[in-house]
Design a protein around this nucleic acid. Structure first.
Length: 553
RNA sequence: UGCCCGAUGGUGUAAUGGCAACACAGCAGAUUUUGAUUCUGUUAUUCUAGGUUCGAGUCCUAGUCGGGCAACCA
């Protein structure tokens, strides 16, 4: 099906590597740092890494890049594992960079012995100063000349805890004149007397990213190490270390990270929103995190489809959030059960009702899928309809209720408006209709053709519920590039809570279930629901041609 | 004013020296017991200037514009 689409540049590289015999199978990895929750940008990376292995018959490891004990925590490890699984992927092995601390330490000693690394006593300010600038070469210092023997002794002292934090670092002996700042003697080990979430207090020195990531790739024999564009300058160091350590030559390839309109995709900013309580936690349904999207009612299928549609390339991009919405609507349309819920009720009295107190009607659960059957819906003399579905003086092309006009009540009868009541303030308080007895859904012999169909709930049977209506988190398309503090551009109306009247079959709705509230949008029960008072999150609205039509006026 | 990366409709992505296409969005219409879904049609694209070539979105050179690089973060 998707065969029509050309290969992305990474697939091209892999196919070339497979064809040339450079590799007989491939290995990728997804390497999150356990210092935050996964977001949609990670989903792109997950789909890419796991997808590649699936497509070419290789394997993908889940590897936690846990080299900074200060910011990392097992809470994040657990959430990350849950999110990857929920997205529908299975890793080959669950690994941690910290598993390799001993091996990494050995690599460092090897570098020292080769005269390619040295212990530096400078402060970080001095190191930064001596590094020069992009247009100015760096300077050497006295420590750079230390012998391998002295360096080894000092480095062992570092490991043994003889020094305090910041007192010494281990640096690569690179090229202080390199146009690539990362090659100007990068720090590869620092002292941190800190408790690590897995190794506890076994270590007081920790490798830096550049001395852990590529080496872990190599240890795991990762063939294609895929990361985002900001790591492009690191590739030279990545290759340099592999060469001098004489280890398995993993190769790094970079792609452009995902950006989506009206949100932010940086762990730092998301953490800030959580800590400063702009949102109610990492899984607040307004967040672009995987856990938030799950809570909001997105499906793994729709997220995978989205990641597939946005493609993989090397140019910066800003994806219209409308594409994400399209993907989730497309999936939910196929699987969501239809229900009727009135958000802003107005009472309707069927004046000529002479049927039973309660008549049970039947409504299809999903017109896209007859297999999922029907549910019963009670009808009675008094019902609620949406306030906006009645207008005393309707505009042109208004298909709903207005004096003298007819509409169909979905799954029920055609009714004709015969009158209405207003209060002193001029608000309509009650609408009177007469129903057409022969027009019952499924057995309509009235021969009437009505353009409008509206949803309703029986007043006597209505279930009180709460809906949480989410809108974009930010008011501006690209909050990260706009001037000033990104928090100033938060959308104050990103969450609206409303009490609503639902059809009674919604009483037992369980988290995870997907519903379409007819004409209102897709919804899913929130874990905050309690027996008898369900809470629903709006995943996404329905497309609304009428709203668009009105906007034009 | 050093080095690196990038530039194709409004937004993304493809076209691998040979007819610039696909999706979303937009617009117009059809169908519809959800103004939903579905269907049909349609608008709109190769940053600039040189060069190579029978032929350039694609290769080369220069420029322009955008992004990145000077953490004991990843």
């Amino acid at each position: 099906m998707s065969e029509e689409k050309g290969l992305n540049f990474i697939e091209e590289i892999i196919e070339a590597d497979l064809q040339s015999g450079k590799h007989t199978s491939i290995a990728t990895r997804f390497p999150p740092e356990p210092n935050g929750y996964l977001h949609l940008g990670h989903a792109k990376s997950i789909c890419l890494n796991f997808g590649l292995a699936l497509k070419y018959g290789g394997k993908t490891n889940l590897r936690f890049d846990d080299t900074n004990p200060i910011t990392e925590d097992t809470e994040y490890v657990e959430s990350i594992k849950a999110d990857v699984r929920w997205l529908g992927f299975n890793w080959s092995e669950e690994l941690y960079a910290s598993d390799y601390f001993e091996q990494l330490y050995g690599f460092a000693e090897k570098l020292i012995e080769k005269g390619l690394a040295y212990v530096d006593d400078s402060t970080s300010e001095q190191i930064a100063e001596e590094k020069g600038t992009p247009t100015q070469a760096g300077k050497s210092n006295q420590y750079r000349q230390r012998s391998p023997e002295e360096n080894l002794m000092l480095f062992r002292g570092m490991r043994a805890g003889k020094f305090k934090d910041h007192e010494k670092v281990l640096r690569v002996k690179g090229d202080l004149a390199s146009p690539n700042m990362l090659m100007r003697d990068p720090v590869i080990y620092r002292i941190k007397h800190a408790h690590h979430h897995r190794t506890g207090d076994a270590w007081c020195i920790y490798p830096m990213y550049d001395f852990a990531h590529g080496q872990s790739d190599s240890i795991e024999k990762i063939t294609h190490s895929i990361c985002t564009l900001e790591f492009v300058p690191h590739r030279e160091l990545y290759d340099w270390l592999i060469k001098h350590l004489e280890i398995f030559p993993s190769r790094q390839y970079e792609f452009a990270r995902l950006n989506v309109t009206y949100t932010v995709m940086s762990k730092r900013k998301l953490l800030q929103l959580v800590q400063e309580k702009f949102v109610n936690g990492w899984d607040d349904p307004r967040m672009p995190t995987i856990s938030a999207m799950r809570r909001r009612g997105f499906t793994p299928e729709s997220i995978r489809d989205f990641c597939d549609k946005i493609g993989v390339a090397r140019r910066e991009n800003l994806i219209d959030v409308g594409l994400l919405e399209f993907c989730v609507r497309e999936h939910l349309n196929r699987i969501a059960s239809r229900r009727m819920v009135v958000f802003d009720p107005i009472r309707v009295v069927v004046q000529n009702w002479n049927g039973p107190d309660t008549e049970m009607l039947s409504g299809e659960n999903n017109p896209e899928n007859p297999d999922v059957g029907h549910r019963n819906i009670p009808f009675s003399k008094e019902i609620f309809i949406e306030r906006e579905d009645f207008m005393e003086e309707p505009p042109k092309k208004y298909f709903r209720l207005s004096p003298g006009q007819m509409v169909r009540l979905k799954h029920a009868y055609i009714v004709k408006c015969t009158g209405f009541k207003k209060d002193d303030a001029g608000n309509v308080t009650e609408v009177h209709v007469e129903y057409i007895k022969e027009s019952r859904s499924g057995s309509d012999t009235s021969g009437l053709q009505v353009k409008g169909v509206i949803h309703w709930v029986s007043a006597a049977h209505a279930l009180n519920a709460e809906v949480r209506l989410y809108d974009r988190l930010f008011r501006v398309e690209d909050p990260s590039t706009i001037e000033g503090d990104f928090r100033e551009h938060l959308n104050p109306d990103s969450l609206r809570i409303q009490k609503v009247m639902a059809e009674p079959s919604l009483a037992g709705a369980q988290p995870g279930e997907k519903f379409q509230f007819l004409r209102m949008g897709y919804f899913t029960p929130d874990p905050d629901s309690t027996p008898g008072s369900p809470v629903f999150n709006r995943t996404v609205t329905l497309r609304d041609a009428w709203a668009k039509e009105q906007k034009k006026q």
